[in-house]
Amino acid sequence: MKKNQFIFYVSLLIVILGLLMIADLMIGSVNVFSILNNSQLLDTILYTIRLPKVLTCVLAGSALALCGLLMQTLFRNPLAGPYALGVSSGASLFVAIATMLLTSIQISGLYFFGKSMITLFSMVGAFLVTLIILMISKKNKSSVTVLLVGIMLSQILGALQSLVEFMSSSNALKTFVIWGMGSVSSTTLSDMVIIVPIYVSSIFVAYLMVKSLNAILLNENYAANLGINISMLRIKVILITAILVGVITAFCGPIAFIGISVPIASRLLFKTSHHTHQITFCLLLGACVMVFADLICQLLSAHMMLPINTVTTLIGSPVVMYLLFKSKFNAQ
């Protein structure tokens, strides 16, 4: 892709994202224009409620899209993604365990300790599942088999999660069920202290891996012959995926289909294999899709928040189905 083309697409995506963010800030159960005279109410609605939600959408959408891209490149499998392969389910199970433990020892007063522990547990869950998937994909190269194993893993982890929920107290269960629906509206601006540093450093490391990611598109043997340390690359991708999926799942719940569908859409739209371009496009497109999904939620249900997973699934699953029917991707 030529430099001018890249700059044009990036600018276009930034403009679209900006417009979507403004729309998402303006639209909701309260009309912002009708409360322009009431600055206190305006501040509360814009800065305390809507801004953290829009920022969470941007961070979650872009982070999950990046994870999907990294997984698809590492496995050389266009059907890989954190939700489809059960990584989000692993994070969810561990969040369930953490929620149960934290509720039982009653440390609800220690906000940051609680949030940090849940985030850490979520990362561990995501890490373990990514590791299992990587081991399976090394044994069996078929992308469909890896996807099926991911679906099975999700089912197993879902069953274990039900078991944890069954044993948990009513308080923990309530917290967890609401969280499990996937929501971007429960984060506050102070949560950004945990999310933003992790997000920024992970993206920085991802950009440092561009050369290795490009080379592994050939295959592992060719990449090794081009001087790439494959084991090191695997470790980095697993860690970044686990950390980002972990932190996003801890704060927003398991978000469906963004991770798998955005990198696919990005490849279909922007026709480039270079990872400097693909990482940038996935970050911006992921953010756009997530803010758009939130906007749809707002528009469809003015007084009651529709779970964001409903919309991301409706947007994402047709993309995956399109891919499955498109033989060019060699999904076998």
Binding site: Q72, T73, R76, P78, Y207, L208, M209, V210, K211, S212, N214, A215, L217, L218, N219, N221, Y222, L226, G227, I228, R267, K271, T272, S273, H274, H275, T276, K328, F329, N330
Partner: peptide, 29 residues
């Protein structure tokens, strides 16, 4: 080798350019 390479938008130019990987900076420019 005889392994099939393709997918992920890889063009002929991209693949040949990957031959330069050992000489490039980490950003692959």
């Amino acid at each position: 080798t005889t392994e099939k390479i393709g997918g992920f938008n890889l063009t002929v130019y991209d693949v040949v350019a990957l031959g330069r990987t050992p000489y490039l900076s980490m950003f692959g420019k």
